[in-house]
Write a protein that binds this DNA or RNA. Structure first.
Length: 434
RNA sequence: GGAGGCGUCGCCUAGUCUGGUCUAUGGCGCCGCACUGCUAAUGCGGUUUGGGGUUUAUCCCCCAUCGGGAGUUCAAAUCUCCCCGCCUCCGCCA
């Protein structure tokens, strides 16, 4: 949610942002209009309410006198009660107007996406800017063999079973078996130990949350169609640990001197993948469920840009350790989620697709989420919302796919990068089981 | 799932039966000031959150806020109903 003060004081800035995203700038005017209406409704209600309170204070003592048989007091009381009765109707009416105006303003503000950073490239999905390229794609022709895709390698290693995943759960589901299962555990351990070293508190959060948590993190807006909802219980399956991590401090006032608070959450992620039919149907690249270790920071808004760079550097540290060729892109405004002011994606090279594909992603949500979730710090003149940022450390399935494809050998085995070996009992390669 | 208890402005707590100076009591903690020759004591003041007004260094004022919502009433922390959360016991279960 954008600060209503910001919209009042600088509506042009918000219009610019909406336009950059390809969203309607007129939504800003709707907010301003609703705001004016609410203010006038509130002032009407307040004066009536004050009048009513005053009246009540006169009635109390009179009632006592009237009960003890004071006829004069009784007459005055009857008169006051008439006034009070009429006033009550007016108060109720004014209150309804305020409530409606509140609802209208709230709805109008929630339509607006976060204000994008000035530096973010403007445009659609294809208008990203490449910031870094790291590592080099292997020349498989020079090595004398054609690379196998991750599905084929997963089969050879006895690591991935998509057929039985489909039999039991449907398309876009999988089993990790044997060395595939071990690889997930190793990646998680490596990610968590790296995060801990970098000052993050490891967290295993709930992956089933109430509407308030989903709503507060902004996933019930434009992304709602990708969220699984449990109708019978009115609960949601999270699509990322970002949701329970952000909501962890919901409705809290944090100690400003303790910021930044950094958490690394390990959770399953559930995604309906509505609207991506026919896209990445092969293997485990795009699935309805996967596990992920997600970084999440609560920090002073003044430090958000710096913290964003830090999260990006941790993502890169992880990819470097896995010895994967990748690039970092600055995602264009039109391709940002509604909560993000800026987003960087790390994309690994997939030799069989001959292109870079997203592996991790980090977003600066500034105070957009914290306003909805009411997460703030105490300041001299009240409270102020904190900034929230998130970043993927490791999305297991895509990372496994990238590792298999990039580190495969002609005989179907896969080399284990040195940094990962300690988490796999020291083995140097995954060997075919068939 | 069943029975019972509880939820008050950081923490603890009074108030709820019997609706109205509740403008929510007291203690602890914290902050400020005063005083005292000393890491302390004592005294005084302040200390929920959100919104609005005024000012914009402050100060002050108004409205709402007693887990959430609905209702009764001229008037709700207080009465009624629904929901949420916590605790105890029982049942079930990994």
């Amino acid at each position: 949610m954008i600060d209503i003060q910001v919209i009042r004081q600088n509506p042009d800035e918000v219009r610019r942002s909406q336009t950059a995203r390809g969203e309607d700038p007129a939504a800003v005017d709707a907010v301003l209009e609703a705001d004016t209406a609410r203010r006038s409704a509130l002032s009407d209600f307040e004066s009536l309410r004050a009048e009513q309170k005053n009246l009540g204070k006169q009635i109390g003592p009179l009632q006592g006198k009237a009960k003890s048989g004071d006829a004069e007091a009784q007459a005055a009381l009857d008169e006051l009660m008439k006034t009070a009765s009429a006033l009550a109707d007016r108060v109720a009416a004014a209150e309804n107007i305020v409530r409606d105006a509140d609802t209208a303003l709230d709805a109008a503000v929630k339509v607006l996406s976060n204000i994008v950073e000035e530096a973010a490239p403007v445009g659609g999905e294809e208008d990203f800017v490449v910031l870094h390229e790291v590592g080099k794609a292997r020349d498989f022709a020079a090595e004398g063999f054609t690379p196998r895709d991750h599905v084929e390698i997963g089969e050879i290693l006895g690591a991935i079973d998509v057929e039985r995943g489909a039999k039991v759960s449907g398309s876009r589901f999988y089993y990790l078996t044997g060395q595939g299962a071990l690889l997930e555990l190793a990646l998680v351990q490596m990610a968590i130990s790296m995060a801990t070293k970098n000052g993050f508190t490891p967290v295993i959060p709930p992956s089933l949350v109430k509407p308030a948590a989903m709503e507060g993190t902004g996933f019930l807006g434009q992304a709602a169609e990708n969220v699984y909802r449990l109708e019978a219980d009115d609960m949601y399956l999270v699509g990322t640990a970002e949701v329970p991590l952000a909501a962890y401090h919901m409705d809290e006032i944090l100690d400003a001197s303790k910021l930044p608070l950094r958490y690394a959450g390990y959770s399953p992620c559930f995604r309906r993948e509505a609207g991506s039919h026919g896209k990445d149907t092969k293997g485990i690249f795009r699935v309805h469920w996967f596990d992920k270790v997600e970084m999440f920071s609560f920090c002073d808004p003044a430090d958000a840009l710096e913290e964003h760079q830090r999260l990006l550097s941790f993502e890169r540290e992880f990819l470097d350790a896995l010895e994967l060729p990748y690039r970092v892109i600055d995602v264009a405004t039109g391709d940002l989620g509604s909560s993000a002011a800026r987003k960087f994606d790390c994309e690994a090279w997939f030799p069989t697709q001959e292109r870079y594909r997203e592996l991790t992603s980090t977003s600066n949500c500034t105070t957009f989420q914290s306003r909805r979730l009411r997460i703030r710090t105490k300041q001299a003149d009240g409270t102020a919302p904190v900034a929230t940022l998130n970043g993927t450390l490791v999305a297991i399935t895509r990372t496994i796919a990238a590792l298999y494809e990039n580190h495969q050998q002609a005989d179907g085995s896969v080399n284990v990068p040195a940094a990962l070996r300690p988490f796999l009992g020291g083995i140097e390669k995954f060997t075919p089981v068939k």
